[in-house]
């Protein structure tokens, strides 16, 4: 702290930041909170609290099938994204590629170009190919939009590896696979897990792309929720399901943060 200045300035800054973070998180917090409201329509403050919407959520076969679709699509898309993205990240991180900047820029395009525009085009192509609303079509689209996350995370993960480490391990007598398993893998494992989690979540929660290419057979939860919100307004059952989803994400982030902190400390 600078001479001749009171602590007030810093505290005000802290308070402002805390307020902003709370505001950013408030929709998620209220989503969780409002799922415990007993009435059909949410009002604040609620007149009574209950778990009945959670019970209804578990009982609803309709939502269960869309959640199953979302999960399945998310898992396949994440697997594809992690495999393809990790393969691409390896040469990019080692810098062994010509036109590396251009390739990186190209691979990150789905993050920078508007997905709604792409979806309007994709919709027409899928319709022409007859794969609108098919499992394959959804998985392909989701793998495409999650790929840049994986590429980014894995480039960073690989860049953290000293290329001499592998050689050092081998010089100490480790066979190639053992060297990979004992040296490279543990270092990139957090990156792999992070990109898998990111890809899964982006796919699982995607509404922008899916709502365009959705059909009647494979309807993901966000697509169902969106069409329902547009036509009928908020169904409290979806509040309960949404609350569980964001609650799980919040928990995963906090646990992940805790683990990575501990992991860093043991390495330090």
């Amino acid at each position: 702290m600078i001479a001749g200045q009171s602590r007030g300035r810093g505290l005000l800054w802290d308070a402002f930041t805390v307020l902003v973070i709370l505001a950013v998180l408030s929709p998620i917090a209220v989503l969780i909170f409002s799922a415990f409201n007993d009435g059909r329509a949410f009002r604040f403050p609620p007149q009574a609290y209950s778990l009945r919407w959670f019970e209804a959520a578990f009982a609803s076969a309709e939502y269960r099938s869309s959640l199953a679709s979302s999960t399945l699509i998310g898992m396949i898309a994440a697997a594809l994204s992690v495999v393809i993205g990790t393969m691409a990240a390896l040469p990019l991180a080692r810098g062994a590629v010509r036109r590396r900047r251009a390739i990186e820029l190209l691979l990150l395009a789905p993050l920078t170009l508007p997905l709604i525009v792409w979806s309007i085009a994709l919709l027409q192509i899928y319709a022409f190919l007859g794969i609108n609303g098919s499992l394959g079509g959804l998985v392909l689209a989701h793998a495409t939009i999650t790929l840049p996350y994986t590429v980014r995370i894995m480039i960073a993960a690989f860049a953290g590896i000293d290329p001499h480490l592998d050689a050092a391990a081998r010089s100490l007598g480790a066979p190639p696979f053992t060297a990979f398993r004992r040296v490279t893998l543990p270092i990139v494992l957090p990156g792999l897990l992070t990109s898998a989690a990111f890809s899964f979540l982006v796919s699982f929660n995607d509404v922008i792309v899916s709502t365009f290419i959705a059909g009647s057979r494979w309807i993901t939860f966000p697509v169902r929720l969106y069409s329902q919100l547009r036509s009928q307004g908020v169904d409290p059952i979806t509040l309960a399901i949404g609350a569980m989803i964001v609650g799980a994400i919040l928990l995963a982030v906090l646990v992940g943060e805790l683990i990575s902190k501990r992991w860093k400390r043991t390495r330090a």
Binding site: I21, V24, V253
Partner: peptide, 18 residues
């Protein structure tokens, strides 16, 4: 990480809370 949470929750769920 907390700032990133709404981003990975997609466009829909935070809007539902809003």
């Amino acid at each position: 990480a907390l700032i990133l949470v709404p981003l990975v929750c997609g466009a829909l769920l935070p809007t539902l809370g809003l």
